[in-house]
Design a protein around this nucleic acid. Structure first.
Lengths: 338, 338
DNA sequence: CTGAAAGCGCTTACAG
DNA sequence: CTGAAAGCGCTTACAG
């Protein structure tokens, strides 16, 4: 195989243009004064040599890397896939790259992935922390600019972007209780995660006399949602269920199917976080829609602002509203189970 | 805000351990001879100073970066989300990082994203090219180690990992024709993409006397699938449909619902690429399951092997088998439409 | 087994 | 407006 041709450097461009490498740098970075003549010759040489800057050299010297980490628990969860897309855009427009880190909601893997990210000396980190995360005040310093999205960490003074979890989940619960269900289950995520805690609070606020809340904690996956729902159908005596996220809601529906039951005739279901397929099927699934694109955009813009040094006096804690989208998966309980 | 404390470097470690920076480097990279005593002192100093290597410096000097690009058309498409997870694992185990590039199936954006990637001088590129990609033999050289996944580019001599598209899609078509449908539509992806071409070939191979194929090309999104299906329901006179991918299949189901029709009583549907929700709903969706995890693993292993210089004599073209998963979305055509 | 020197590609800080 | 010098953090290539 032929040796790969060596790539052009600033020095090659400088030589071809008859200027110094600093002048090339000035032209490329549009900083400092450069005569029109020199600029023209540099631009022409760049073109001719097919020169493309090496970020490694640039970042090393300037001690400013254009990399921003995005650490999430599962890119297969459409919430995080949408978040990635939404964050990437404003960062790209600001000249920043996103390094996606999949952490499987595992604190060990998260720590390893963040170590990896740290080795790139990134400009920032957007984090949706894993259950039992070890991310702490100490690490905030390592990453300089940190924004938490969706999930938060108690006692950490960093900007956050979240949905009005408690209120929105409470509204979903009320939808089921108000339909006449007495025993309603919330199939939540892992205990100790902020989203589980806040959604559970909303669920409990919807409880009043004669209403019986049932709570199950899960890993937040489809398989876990399915297992929890199977158990609830066997022994829980519930007639309505709230799903923590898209995978859990999917798992709940799988279990209902496998039991030979139907939504909403046998069980009513409300999901948290909307997904395209929920309006593609019979019955269409009632769900709380989160403004994920807005969350991503806000997080991206916060990071951009922070990398530009615009650290505000007050740490921003942005809250975006979820909205219940009523479809067909909620009905009255069967006669006799009421 | 307090100035960020300067991070420790090899020199700091060297000084603390009473050795030279090269010896530190030798210990960290486990290459060359180091006395047990020196090693111990270095390890201890690393620990004490909380030293973590700077990839930028390392990559710049060694001209070997641990970064591998993964360029896909849409991380929101579960196929690519699964692919990312599957590729990331073997690469991480080999000490490589994945930079995910979302290209929106847009050749302009793809070019821009690949330019960005090139600035990191990556060790490799795993690419699922955009429609109308401008990726060419010239660029293969830029990225040194390239593997194409799922979608291929004619005339490019690089390793590929694909499903047996033609055969698997043909089997899905046969499933519908064999159920008694005469006019069957394939809602495909963009014209000119290898997957569209190969799946269409499979579709046409399933056609015989009395069977009428209808083909629609789309952008491959949920919205495009919905629009195509709406048109087919209005004027196409088809009783069965094949969906190109998960988003298109979702869009098809949305259009069926919006028309007040039911699957499979009014229209039979088979999807290409399986998704969790397809077995969570009534009717469960019959689909061709692709071994995405295996594809990702194979692509990752190819990249790892290539970065280690193990370039095989023959360019590998790996083909993995799709499998039709029969569920409930296929039935006989309505009487009278047959 | 170890270190002094050099250099990866770039930009900063300085001097003109 | 421009360039010579230095250095970001690391590893290579060499000499001992």
């Amino acid at each position: 195989m032929p040796a790969r041709p060596k790539r052009a450097t600033v020095h090659d461009v400088a030589e071809a243009a008859g200027v110094s490498s600093q002048t090339v740098s000035r032209v490329l970075n549009e900083r400092g004064y450069v005569s029109e003549d020199a600029r023209r010759r540099v631009v022409e040489a760049v073109e001719r040599l097919g020169y493309a800057p090496n970020v490694l050299g640039r970042s090393l010297r300037s001690t400013r890397s254009p990399m921003v980490g995005l650490a999430v628990s599962d890119i297969g969860n459409p919430f995080y896939a949408r978040l990635h897309r939404a964050i990437e855009k404003p960062l790209r427009d600001a000249g920043l790259s996103v390094l996606l880190l999949n952490c499987d909601d595992d604190p060990e893997l998260e720590a390893a992935q963040l170590d990896l990210l740290a080795s790139y000396r990134p400009a920032g980190l957007v984090l949706s922390p894993a259950t039992g995360t070890r991310f702490s005040a100490r690490q905030v310093g390592t990453f300089e600019n940190v924004v938490l999205v969706s999930r938060t960490i108690a006692g950490l003074d960093v900007p956050t972007v979240v949905t009005n979890e408690t209120e929105a989940f409470g509204q979903a619960a009320e939808e089921l209780f108000a339909a006449g269900h007495r025993r309603v289950a919330a199939v939540l995520g892992p205990e100790g995660v902020s989203t589980t805690r806040l959604r559970e609070a909303g669920f409990r606020q919807a409880v009043s006399a004669g209403r019986e809340p049932v709570v199950r904690y899960t890993e937040g996956t489809s398989a876990a949602g399915r297992a929890a729902m199977r158990e609830l159908l066997d022994t829980g005596g519930v007639t309505a269920v709230l799903g923590f996220n898209v995978p859990v809601t999917e798992g709940i529906l799988v279990a209902v199917r496998e039991a030979g039951l139907h939504v909403p005739e046998d069980v009513s279901v409300v999901g948290f976080t909307d997904a395209g397929w929920m309006s593609a099927v019979y019955p269409a699934v009632t769900a709380v829609s989160q403004p994920v694109e807005e969350m991503g955009r806000l997080a991206g813009e916060l990071i951009v602002a922070m990398t530009r040094g615009g650290r505000p006096r007050e740490t921003p804690h942005l809250v975006v509203p979820g909205a219940l989208v009523r479809r067909e998966s909620v009905g009255p309980p069967r006669e006799g189970t009421r």
